[in-house]
Structures are given as structure tokens and as C-alpha cells.
Amino acid sequence: MLIDETKCVGCGRCSVYCPVGAHRFERTPEGKVYAVVDQELCCECGVCLRAGVCEMDALYEPELEMPRLVRAILSNPLIEFKESGVPGRGTAEIKTNEITGRVRYATAGVALEMGRPGVSTKWTDVEVMTKALAKLGVGFCDENPVTYFMKDKKTGELKDEVRNERSLSAIIEFDCKLEELPKVLEVIKENIDKIDTVFSLDVACKIRPDGSIPVLSIIDQAGFEVLMNTKNNMGLGRPRFREEGEPL
């Protein structure tokens, strides 16, 4: 996002809309105050422009090119990541699991949303986690933007051109076998202090016919706490994917 300093009157109405505080004020040699957007902090989410509060029409979004476009892909919910064909920052994950059968009784879906909530993330921090997790041989989800911008999925290394970018969040997403989950959570824990941002962590599982949920004891033993809120696929989609042993 940019601000045309010749139009801006420095009223500050747009600045409070910025989720990362990237708007600041400067003064011309003649003493006129105007706003500028810190291009390092700005994640190109576009919310300040969409707020429509600038009466001087000073805010504008130039056409973004790679690698800066990465910021918009991961931060502006109105921009679709074409390679996945799924709007948003991740994949369809459990939202359609009763149809796709992506997460099964013997597996877990894991996601780390780097930078969330309200902090944002540099992609160097994203890479700290992807490289650590890659050593476990996890299969990063295709169709996910972070995976797409990896140089090598086996090492978790990101492409050089995106490493210095930043976004409101970046979701590292993969599935693993249940028996691998303890090690996955251990590695995540080991790397918490190596990043300069926050991340929100989630684990998804298919509930077994007897109502048991094996991931809960694994999460507990790993020293993580499960919060009260959950996201639940209600099983209404058809045709339904059925794995062996699943009741009709």
C-alpha cells in the first residue's frame, strides 16, 4: 500500500485500520504533515484502502509483482491463491474431510499459523519451522501457499525471493501418522524460542466410531493444552468417503 503525499492531509483516519501499525507520519520541509506506509511492515492486506475512510483519495495499491505479491496472497483475504483454487491462506483441510477422506483414523492434520493473531510474521521465521519439521519427513500439503513457495519440500527451505517477505500470517500445513505426532509436537516445542513472532497451533483428527479421540492423550503427553473452541466437520457432505472399518 502506498499513500500519495501530495494528496494526504495527515488526518490519520486510515492509520488505525492497519493491523500491524505500518502507517506513520512525516512532515515536509514546509511543515505539512502526511502519512506514509512503512513498506517493510506493510503486509499488503488492503484493509486500510477498503475501509474507504480517505476523503482525499490518497491511498492506492500499486500492481504488485513477485516477490512482494506473496504478502498480498497471504494477507488479503480477497486475493485467491490460484495454485490451490481455494480462497484463504490454507487448504480446504477438514472442512470437506467427510468427502475427501484427507484426515483418517490413523492420521492427524497439523497446522501452525505463523504470525497469528495480530503480530504478523517474517518468512525467515516461517522457514525456521518448516526446516525443523522437514527433518522429520512430514509431507507438507500441496495447494498450500507456504508449501508452494518452498525451494525444496524435503528440506523445508523457502525460495530465495520470498525469504525476506512478511505476511499477516502464513500457515504451515501437513498431515502425519498418529504415531509420528508426539515427535512433531516435540520439535515444534523445541523451536518456539527460535522465532521472533507468535504462532497458533492446531491438530485435527477424525473421531472414531466409538467416540474416542486418540490425539487428545498425545497432545496432553506432549505438554500442550487443548482450548475449549474447536472446528467441527458435521459429516453432511456427499458422497461420503469411507475407509475400511468405518460404519455406514
Binding site: 483441510e93 477438514i94 474431510n97 467427510e98 484426515v103 492434520g109 497469528r116 493473531p117 495480530g118 503480530v119 515444534i188 518456539i192 522465532i195 521472533d196 513472532t197 507468535v198 504462532f199 497458533s200 497451533l201 492446531d202 491438530v203 485435527a204 483428527c205 477424525k206 473421531i207 467416540g211 479421540i213 490425539v215 487428545l216 497432545i219 500442550f224 493444552e225 487443548v226 482450548l227 473452541n229 474447536t230 472446528k231 467441527n232 466437520n233 458435521m234 459429516g235 453432511l236
Partner: peptide, 20 residues
């Protein structure tokens, strides 16, 4: 509907939480 089909758990927020 019987029981939920698939559930995703939040394991909270970690890292530099002092920046939240």
C-alpha cells in the same frame, strides 16, 4: 446427526506472546 465427523483442536498461541 450423531457424532461430529472430524474435529480440529486449538492448541493455543506460542512464541513471542508478549507481542500479542
Amino acid at each position: 446427526l450423531g457424532q461430529v465427523h472430524t474435529r480440529e483442536y486449538s492448541l493455543g498461541t506460542h512464541g513471542k506472546t508478549e507481542r500479542l
